[in-house]
């Protein structure tokens, strides 16, 4: 399947790999925001996940343990944020930005010994005959396991939010923490758990960058991916299925822009580099205009400080 000299099958496959780090991070941030916490420190958690995962994988020789360490590093960062915002009641926007600054610095310090090292390879998942299917094979069935994990998580989060009691509590806490507190739910604990989950996924996304996409450790290697993940959550108007759409759309436009250049199309490159951002804005406008509830789609208690004795 080609269009204008561009192989769409290969493009789809590229898109899936390119989008995985931001998809993971955005899924995690969605859960945190559904619980009513706005954590702008995704970039900091991702980069800590990147070095945590890299160091873990290099030291143990196992990529799987590396990903675990990356998730742990991200969760630990999220809990620092949680302690400050939930226990010490600090402002979430400022704390999130500070978390990014802290994470960028700390990851660089930890990473001093890991520059130029090559990590153990993360294998592709062997899906036997599926990989040989025409079209679907190359697009869907020739990736590493983290790609499938990121997709499975979308389903799991959807089920969790819509069908489980715990998901209901999480959403209640995010919509009205005072009411949830009055009903006897432990608002702070729910939020800490949501934050830790979000941090773990951001860390996983970072580890995917350092272990699969690049794969090497360099300072500042997330290069803004965490900010994109944040934007995708808003773009998705806090609905998990749209997070998938947003992440793939964003990754897709970036990949397509480069692909068109490679094919020799005379496109204004500088202006096209903006395309993913402009298109994200356009799609957001269309979605918001159609529902006119775009703004209200945000959890009502998002970013507000909860204090029980009030």
């Amino acid at each position: 399947m080609t269009l204008g000299g561009i192989d769409l099958v290969a493009l789809m496959a590229m898109l899936m790999v390119a989008s995985t780090p931001i998809l993971l991070a955005a899924t995690g941030e969605l859960i945190a925001e559904k619980a009513g916490v706005l954590n702008l420190g995704v970039e900091g958690m991702m980069i800590m996940g990147a070095i945590g995962g890299f160091a873990g994988a290099v030291m143990t020789g196992s990529p799987a343990l590396g990903f675990l360490a990356g998730a742990g590093a991200g969760a630990a960062m999220a809990l620092v944020f949680g302690f400050l915002t939930q226990v010490l009641l600090s402002n979430q926007v400022a704390t999130g930005l500070a978390l990014t600054l802290f994470g960028m610095g700390l990851s660089a310090l930890i990473g001093k010994g890991f520059e130029g090292v090559r990590p153990p390879a993360t294998g592709k998942l062997d899906l036997g005959g599926l990989a040989d299917l025409p079209v679907l094979g190359p697009v869907l069935f020739r990736h590493d396991w983290v790609v499938y994990l990121s997709l499975a998580l979308i389903v799991a989060v959807w089920l969790f939010l819509h069908l489980s009691r715990a998901g209901l509590i999480l959403r209640a806490v995010g919509e009205n923490h005072d009411a949830a507190h009055a009903l006897g739910y432990r608002v702070v604990m729910v939020r800490l758990a949501a934050l830790a989950f979000g941090g773990a996924l951001a860390g996983l996304g970072g580890a995917y960058l350092s272990l699969v996409r690049v794969p090497q450790w360099t300072e500042g290697m997330t290069a803004g991916a965490g900010w994109i993940a944040l934007a995708i959550v808003v773009f998705a108007s806090w609905r998990i299925e749209r997070v998938l759409l947003g992440a793939y759309l964003f990754g897709g436009v970036t990949v397509l822009q480069l692909r068109l250049q490679a094919a020799g199309y005379a496109i204004p490159v500088q202006l096209l580099s903006m395309a993913p951002y402009v298109i994200t804005i356009l799609v957001l406008v269309i979605i918001s205009a159609r529902h006119r509830r775009g703004a209200q789609a945000a959890p009502a208690a998002l970013g507000r400080i909860f204090h029980a004795s009030r």
Binding site: I6, L11, R213, V214, A262
Partner: peptide, 15 residues
Amino acid sequence: FDPAKEADAAAALIA
């Protein structure tokens, strides 16, 4: 320097 974008650029050329 943007590892992710460089990876995508490489993939585009390989394709």
